[in-house]
Nucleic acid binder design. Sequence first.
DNA 1: GATTGACCCTCCCCTTACAGGAAGCATTAT
DNA 2: ATAATGCTTCCTGTAAGGGGAGGGTCAATC
Lengths: 265, 265
Amino acid sequence: MLTIGEFSKISHLTLKTLRYYDEIGLLKPAFIDAKNNYRYYTISQLETALLIARLKSYLFSLEEIKVILANWEDTELLNLKMKAKQENLAQQITFYSSLSKKLKHDLQLLEEEKNIMGYLDQIEIKLVDHITYHIVSQRKQINTADFLLHFNELFSKILFENLSPIAKPLAIFHSSEYEPENYDVEIAIPLAMATHKTKVFNPGLCAMATLIGSYDELPSIHTKLHVWIDEHNYQLNGAPFEVYQTDPYSTPEENHITEVYFPIK
Amino acid sequence: MLTIGEFSKISHLTLKTLRYYDEIGLLKPAFIDAKNNYRYYTISQLETALLIARLKSYLFSLEEIKVILANWEDTELLNLKMKAKQENLAQQITFYSSLSKKLKHDLQLLEEEKNIMGYLDQIEIKLVDHITYHIVSQRKQINTADFLLHFNELFSKILFENLSPIAKPLAIFHSSEYEPENYDVEIAIPLAMATHKTKVFNPGLCAMATLIGSYDELPSIHTKLHVWIDEHNYQLNGAPFEVYQTDPYSTPEENHITEVYFPIK
DNA sequence: GATTGACCCTCCCCTTACAGGAAGCATTAT
DNA sequence: ATAATGCTTCCTGTAAGGGGAGGGTCAATC
């Protein structure tokens, strides 16, 4: 039997960590002396400690590790979890890479003595009278992170019903508050003919800005339009919407073209 | 003037977030009504909000953003911070990549129905009688993360004093507890001749294991040796040490060769 | 037998960047 | 006048422990 201090030294886990693992039930000492609450560990628990350390190095959360240990015989589960983690890492890497690219771009702006928010001043805002569409649409409360999923749903519906769009898809933002977890959005596709499934979309006069580049900038475009409307003494007259001119799957991020419209009066 | 609700909607920051930014002094409302504590923001604060969102998307902490905003005119500072962040991202990417490689390796083991901790059973432990060295050394309390730095310090000292090593460098671990922030380590290099700067290093009988691969596995080797010593009824007889047979800079991680010695009796 | 120093215990607060919810005013719309 | 929002503060919780206080316990030494 090893005291917590000895076990800590051998396993290379701190005392704090060991007590914490005991607390959350991840690695409970083999024996606890009832009269003084001293923790005692066995030599064989060192293996578990090493395993935990290894899974931790793979960035599994302690909660995940607990599940994996509880089903240690189930190699299928471990396999699954590891593959998921692998996928996860790949996503992280692409995320960081694209971030790094953006940072590099902004650093270049800085070298040229430009403001990194300067792109905002470049955006031109136009007054347009939007034509009337017949749209099929789906309105839902969604998490902003699942935006694309929601799009696909409608797309496949359109395809399966043999309908043919006459203009690019759009998203209409009905939310009266900003809650990213619960965003009230209507995805729509304009069709050539009115049917019983379509409805009329007639935004009328709009302030419009075109964004070329990553969707990350969309919030600033919205803000910009809000400010513009305020400064020019117009008033919002309906839900803002975005028209996606490029396919988000096949187009590289920096070539995306998005039009943002704010109906006004 | 905008109420917090309006500002939230336009800036795409939640109410919670805005109140929090107020609390930590990152974005204080331009005006607070003293009689009901209502927060009011100006249109121009939207710019700040956008800037904060952008810096946040670059993974700066709110504390860092506060500093950047406070010195917004100082483009030099921003430049520096961004470069540091860039460097940071690059490190993350290499870290994740190497992790992904390790995961892939372990997944392969799993496919072959092997245990991912199996490598531990492969490690052979030998009894050796270590020869006596004359060493120059530096002993320090260091953070385990700064291990390599400490090495370099001694290396350059050796170089500048024109001493020539006769064997690979080693590290002796004196710590009696495990505290990764404050690790008592002695870095040493064996020299051919005894001088007034050298001391005798004579570990005697040792249990030894050789690790081929990433330094990540070192803790498990230590554990393994501890267990072995315990099981064979030996006793620790001095501080454990590691001999680095390969240059950590020029050797790829998976080819590192490290010998771990535990003096015993 | 007493003391000392090392070792162990529990309990509480701190970290990041908020989210969730309760309880209670204030404002606005009907 | 009433109801529905909108705003406020305050409390709790998150992941994985770190830092430290205050106090009990163990082994070795005097």
